[in-house]
Design a binder for these strands. Structure first.
Lengths: 136, 136
DNA sequence: TTCCTTGTTTATAATTATTCTAAAGAAGAT
DNA sequence: ATCTTCTTTAGAATAATTATAAACAAGGAA
């Protein structure tokens, strides 16, 4: 359980003003035991449900992008019409259940080391992501 | 160099009628040495350039989806506003140059074996894709 | 051939996710 | 309090994709 005050500090430390909306979004995103996978629309609906307060869709977009930029959220590369985010920003991978459109975390140790043995001149590796698609 | 007749047969074998439009699309997609990464819009523009004939955008969508369904094209999981496809349908991976929005093939042997040591009850693995993002 | 059925193409409209805009409101500093 | 800057918001704009339904073409049968 993270207190509201901690979110206020987190936001201040990131030079993001601690507004009511952002704190509500923090509650929904970060006040959890497990990692959380979501689309903007998921989040938009959850905010109303969990906090009882409505935050405009534009603000949800703004805030998610701000948090992503600050490194508090990770974008998951996946083929979907919607963009998926993850509150687990550590280096890890995903299962994607195609039928249920659901993501499941895959720990690094469940995949083993991945050694990329090719390099592109002038470029460096920013991230390595494994996506394992699941079917029935 | 693949002849037009071969495309006609390929289409017939897939119970797709060999129309002028589909054959043109085949020429652009499959008459190449190297693997080809593209978005629908890339392809739409290339058809005009390479064949001199215009195919409607809707037909490009229809055909790409039909070819994807038949297994002649692979969809690449990536976070982009556009969907990327690949004419290389073998099991392999990708670099994505984030700045230039360009994909580069990564052979399986350049990545090494990936062993997924977690399983989800009732589900089986459909595909394993590695995406390596590149930055300058 | 000619006719018939079914599949295909097409322009255009509809849909959907996301971004933009500009005005009103709130936070923080002085 | 006042001022500046950041934030929120509704709604408009954009862009990719999908749906629609009418015209058209392919393939088969007579």
């Amino acid at each position: 359980m993270t207190s509201k005050q901690e979110f206020v500090e987190k936001l201040r430390n990131s030079s993001l003003r601690p507004t009511k909306q952002r704190i509500n979004i923090c509650e929904v995103l970060f006040n959890r035991d497990k990692t959380f996978h979501f689309t903007i629309n998921d989040l938009f609906n959850l905010i109303k449900d969990k906090t009882g307060e409505k935050v405009s869709l534009a603000t949800v977009y703004n805030t998610v992008h701000a948090f992503h930029k600050k490194g508090y959220l990770k974008e998951i590369p996946i083929n979907s019409n919607q963009t998926y985010f993850d509150t687990n920003v550590t280096d890890h991978h995903h299962f994607f259940d195609v039928k249920e459109e659901k993501l499941i975390d895959l720990k690094n140790e469940d995949v083993g080391p991945i050694e990329i043995q090719k390099s592109i001149p002038g470029k460096k590796i920013k991230s390595v992501e494994v996506l394992v698609k699941l079917e029935d």
